[in-house]
Amino acid sequence: MTTSFAALSLVALYSAMAVYAIAFVAFAIDLARRSVPAATVPAEHIPVLVVAGGTSTHEAPGRTDSGPLNETTPTTRAHSRASRVAFALTVLAWLLHLGAAVLRAVAGGRVPWANMFEFSLTGSLLIVGVYLLVNLWVDLRFLGTFVIGLMLILLGVATVGFYVDVVPLPPALQSAWLVIHVFVALLATAFFALSFAASSLQLVQVRRESKPTPAVGRFARMLTTIPDAQSLDVIAYRITIVGFALWTFTLMAGSIWAERAWGRYWGWDVKEVWTFIIWVIYAAYIHAKATRGWQGNRAAWLAIIGFSAVLFNFGIVNVFFTGLHSYSGL
């Protein structure tokens, strides 16, 4: 029984990866097309004055420093066919991916996040899930290649390097805190992943925008079709603070669990250390956003370093460091 569900889960996961791969290509085609000068559709949404039975006396909206997401994208393009296909495929792949996680849960009779393979399975599911969800508010299609690419790498490493059979939970993991603490940590990671993507693009945009003469070439043209550095800055910030709040909770829930399991809520165990380091880096990021001289590039670098620390904590500390958190299952 267990084995057959686990096998089905893998089938679903490989199917999801195949569809992700096609979606990745479609996203890439969309980006490539953007670099071809196209008839751009005029911005569909600029908060223009709506006149109630009178004439307009409105001026162009001032530039805001807080709400530019809808307004400052230079040209809002109608979504290309490639991008629509890519998006639909991503949703399809995500549903297969979700199926893989659910089947894995059924196979184990427990939550599917108790070893490295399962962390990767569910963590990447959450990354795409959050990506799709955030798209309901902010158009993040331009990040598709980035996010789905990251996804394929993660799932590739997970299936090749981390796969383990379904085994029962050891007593140390039999706790409600496994459900809460690890899930929220993975969710926070998903937000940090998006913030990493947005911040990286932000740095690219800053470079482009700071050139005295507009660069020519396909890549440069493509860049003009995605949000400018300042919009990316705002997008990254809003995504990061959600991640930070979740990470704060992760750290606290982890402490409570550590107290239940080991008799102390904090002991500078290797995993605790890295959770703390990540928390401090993102606290620094938030401060940077409010500190003169640190906004923009430096803050973006902190977000990138922060996510690198998350990856390090996940991929290196879990697997290669010895500590109390030896749950990789490898």
Partner: peptide, 13 residues
Amino acid sequence: LSRMPVHEAHEVD
């Protein structure tokens, strides 16, 4: 007020 980041003006009949 038009100097503020978000501003709208409406003339009504």
